[in-house]
């Protein structure tokens, strides 16, 4: 399986995502330049963390206009797997591929720390290999990771089983402890924590790998 990892100006977890896919997951990965209009032959896309376009205006607000996002959008519409991590999640909500918004952390400060996440459902290509209720220890590193949406949207996310991960102890004020969600088609996921930082035993946890392994095992890929 080949992952495409988008490099925006200011992405800084692109290499970490690449390394975790190639060295910890033992799959292929290719870096995709933001100015490219094609995703090539990749089977899944990762939008990595960082500060795309300096996070000017709003996190992810400028990245959504980059050329490659048009390709990512149509890839997603065709059922392709797209995983947005941290800044990638912010880009996905700015792009309208996921609902809601990510605003300043409740404490107003950047937080870098391992956190505990609870797997809320295995009904997604990103969590199928995990067990419901399992606690994953994965780091966060963000200043604007507080997930918000109107009550109607939140109710719908829950009713449709689209909340994939919740914080066991909410670090940033996210409504209903939401750490990661997927779209209605269940092929686009955004999450603030960094699974690529929890993929190597030397980093203290390998709990993030299960998300990437789920993607590899996804039937969506066989259909495609």
């Amino acid at each position: 399986m080949k992952f495409g990892i988008v490099v925006f100006p200011g992405s800084n977890c692109d290499h970490d995502a690449w390394y975790s896919v190639t060295h910890n997951l033992h799959q292929e990965a290719e870096l995709l330049w933001h100015d490219s209009s094609s995703l090539g032959d990749v089977d899944a896309v990762i939008l990595p963390g960082g500060f795309s376009y300096g996070d000017y205006l709003r996190c992810g607000a400028i990245a959504k206009f980059s050329r490659i996002m048009a390709a990512v959008r149509s890839f997603a519409c065709d059922g392709g797997l797209v995983l947005g991590l941290c800044n990638g999640f912010q880009i996905l909500v700015e792009s309208g591929l996921l609902p809601g918004a990510l605003i300043r952390n409740r404490g107003l400060k950047f937080i870098c720390s391992p956190v505990e996440l609870r797997v809320e459902t295995t009904n997604s290509p990103f969590t199928s290999m995990a067990q419901k209720g399992r606690i994953l220890r994965i780091p966060i590193a963000h200043g604007e990771g507080c997930y918000v949406a109107d009550a109607h949207t939140l109710d719908a996310l829950e009713a449709e089983d689209r909340v994939l991960l919740r914080y066991a102890a909410n670090p940033n004020g996210s409504l209903r402890d939401i750490a990661g969600i997927c779209n209605a088609g269940r092929n686009v996921m955004g999450m603030m924590p960094h699974p690529e930082r929890a993929a190597d035993p030397l980093m203290g946890s390998t709990d993030g790998l299960v998300l990437l392994q789920s993607m590899v095992a996804s039937p969506a890929l066989q259909v495609k």
Partner: peptide, 14 residues
Amino acid sequence: IWRQYDHMVRTNTT
């Protein structure tokens, strides 16, 4: 103080 710093990016910090 240090939880305001990203001390893990580049996944090298053991």
